[in-house]
Amino acid sequence: MTVSIVRFGGSNCDRDAERALTHLGVDSQIVWHEDGLPTDTTGVVLPGGFSYGDYLRAGAMAAQSPIIDEVESLAAEGVPVLGVCNGAQIGCESGLTEGAFTTNESARFQCEHVFLRVERDDTPWTDAYDEGDVIEIPIAHGEGRYEIDADRLDTLEAENRVLFRYCDENGDVTDAANPNGSRHNVAGVLGDRETVAVMMPHPERATIPHVGMTDGKGVLRAFE
């Protein structure tokens, strides 16, 4: 019974995730990607960072690691899988989730607090919130602009698979509150199953009180 946090060369939020999960009383372990997933894995975190130095495209190389096949198998069985930041990029590059995270509209790395509107409250990731809740969570990325074909975005929205959108502090989804130019302010999406989610903002950096904010801990509660 343990959440496996997959470490690639260049991951740097693996320990943040481990500490946040420990704070919530969730057993977890950091797993080197070449070692494969332990058989007692009950959840998977693809953490943030700069795997493979973002060569080719952020997440493109890590998505080719054999451990991703194991993650996909578990995801298909309903094991919760969360990709955060670089983990979200890996999730999209591997096809766990649709779309792509690419260069911010500003063409700059952005490290700031953002507000997210909870779009659904009936998923494991948002069970702790109500639909329409506004939560404050940090982002830290250069390639977080969510891109997807217009048709596919229509389908994604029709299937209610957008989990979070960037918004202002009142919950209004506006261009001004969109930090990176993401299509329709999308900050996080679900995969084929509700147990698979990726998001650019960092819930693990908004879980432990001494880092200043705790709005993100509800996301990690999916692993409890």
């Binding site: 080719l56 493109a60 792509a100």
Partner: peptide, 8 residues
């Protein structure tokens, strides 16, 4: 499969 991302 790798060099391009067909999404974008």
């Amino acid at each position: 499969r790798l060099l391009a991302n067909p999404t974008i």
